[in-house]
Amino acid sequence: MSESQFVMHEGDFLAIQKVIDPLLKNARARGVFVVDRVGQLIRQTGEMSNLDTTSLASLTAGCVAATGGLAQLLGEEEFPTHVHQGERDSLHMTLVGGRGILVVVFDQRSSLGLVRLRARKASTQLATIFEAIKKKCEAEGPGNGKTFADISDDEIDNLFSD
């Protein structure tokens, strides 16, 4: 394993929620999503409950990975923000430390300038939270009495008995 397990508890999610709820309001956004760079949705807020968030997360990660590859070709380390402007909705993505991506969806009720301003501060706060989670995961280390350390082959087989 090149990277430690990523384990998140209720408190971690609440900490993230406390950043994205105000961001949603202050940026006058339609939706705010926190996605991990591997393509999993971590947390969301806003009015877009019908959106296919699993697809959103995977495609966001793919998009960031691809533009990150382009950045490296140009000798840049990364492109820390990405903007996609549409006719109705626009997307603003900010990289959060090495781990996360902050996605803000907004329409004409807001503006790119406002979103950029608010997202910058929120992403710094999120980076601190991610860093703390990472430290915690590393400190806990592998195997000491956690949920899956002693799963049996039978339990795994049961998952597939259909």
Partner: peptide, 17 residues
């Protein structure tokens, strides 16, 4: 697919999540 998924879940023991 099942064999791969099994391998992945068995691996959770090693990394002890």
């Amino acid at each position: 697919l099942k064999a791969t998924a099994k391998g992945v879940l068995s691996d959770l023991r090693k990394v002890g999540a």
